[in-house]
Design a protein around this nucleic acid. Structure first.
Lengths: 241, 241
DNA sequence: CCATCCAGCTGGTATAGACCAATTGAGCCA
DNA sequence: TGGCTCAATTGGTCTATACCAGCTGGATGG
């Protein structure tokens, strides 16, 4: 990777940042402007993408990344509230909501039999009109009968749980890791299949500790920074050395 | 990206997994074996790297990734214990331990003036002899005088805090995100500068809530999966919709 | 005024070949 | 036996070119 090419691209990013579309010039234009080839240029852009400085939309072009959203795992704020509290705009698109048979992973997490019926809700979420998050929810139908008939694009699921079903979320279990976008995720985010992503999987339990639903969030990796603050568990204050 | 090339590479990974070095054949051999060019082959390998299936060591070659280590953020187990509890072997290399003047970020996190003296400890950590983690610690000298004289490669820092200074870690604040390895990190992990990484930054406070040290962990992104389980804070059980 | 169509542009993917730099292992020497 | 040198090998980076596929926006037609 030609490090100086990355450096030489930075003024281009600065310029794009101040344009309204935050869009970079086309690869071919940059290539000639910097006197290099498309392959070399794309390597530099890929490196900047890995750093989280630029991102691309499938076959549309390259854009400079906005500042990351801060996401407090323990605050458990609904998405729209979290986003608005950071002076950004939020929007949700409902992609699908249907009954499906539980995939193995979901069945294991919810403690039900594989292929048992579950409700699956897929949504895309936008921050400042940029698609940054693809979520798949799987709900236990026994807990939430007829939930698919509500307006799932506007309502917070937790709010529905509480208001319509009298269920409050108790313990939450997270699993986090880096991954790449599946084709469904890539389609939802206008991204290229295989783009790096941050996965946040969660299992929600009710007041009695029973798993009621789980969801998998796939964030564009440059869009968030996770935070978390806690006192050590179990009295003994040992930590990683 | 030729998806079928990635698919066709999978048997190669399976074969490499069973070899003792877990090493893939050289790029040039794979290129001729699959009748393609090096650039195309490398794109496929990069995609597999993003998926966490393979990784590379700088100028040494490609390797299949071992299973991810599970890292419970709230368990706060010392590294060696965490690794051994998962039937893997752990080792730590001390890279440097010295007094430096606090960089702006560190100063802010520790609540001290920029350029105030701090102790910096840099270590590389291995799991099953693979370098997976580069850590930079910054300690408040006022809390830990002469700590640099201990055997920092073998001792758990927290254990030292407790035994030698009577300090226990109270509240811990995390900040997580994806990033790429700096050159120091890449060197420490035998990685290529710019490899994708998972950052885990932490600020440790003592029993009285005063920041005593902070550290930045940079993990090879395919090496870990983070877990976390908690009940919502503040009574109200609201969660992201 | 709105829906449709299509050309042009953009990124996505691929081929072919070349030189550089670090690693590594074989072979040599003390 | 142990350390050193050096050549082969491997990945790192780059040039040059080509065709495909999807998005986009302007022209067209109802």
């Amino acid at each position: 990777m030609d490090r100086s090419l990355q450096e030489r691209l930075k003024p281009v990013l600065a310029e794009a940042r101040s344009e309204k579309g935050r869009r970079l010039p086309s690869e071919r234009e940059l290539m000639t402007r910097f006197g290099t080839t498309r392959i070399t240029l794309r390597e530099a852009l890929n490196a900047l993408e890995a750093e989280g400085r630029v991102y691309r939309e499938n076959r549309r072009g390259w854009f400079v990344s906005p500042p990351r959203l801060r996401y407090d795992l323990l605050a458990c704020l609904p998405f729209h509230e979290m986003v608005r509290s950071q002076q950004r705009s939020a929007r949700t698109l409902l992609l699908s909501a249907e009954e499906v048979s539980a995939p193995a992973v979901v069945a294991r997490r919810l403690g039900i039999a594989e292929h048992a019926p579950v409700y699956r809700i897929c949504r895309a979420r936008l921050v400042d009109e940029r698609r940054v998050l693809y979520v798949e929810h799987h709900l236990l139908p026994s807990c939430f009968p007829q939930i698919l008939e509500f307006d799932l694009a506007r309502e917070s699921l937790t709010e529905l749980y509480r208001r319509e079903y009298g269920i409050r979320v108790g313990r939450v279990s997270y699993e986090l890791g880096t991954c790449v976008l599946s084709s469904a995720g890539a389609d939802a985010l206008n991204a290229v299949r295989g783009s790096p992503a941050q996965r946040i999987s969660r299992i929600n339990h009710d007041q009695n500790g029973r798993a009621i639903d789980c969801d998998d969030e796939y964030w564009r990796h440059d869009a968030i920074e996770l935070t978390l603050s806690a006192a050590p568990q179990g009295g003994e204050a040992i930590r990683t050395s």
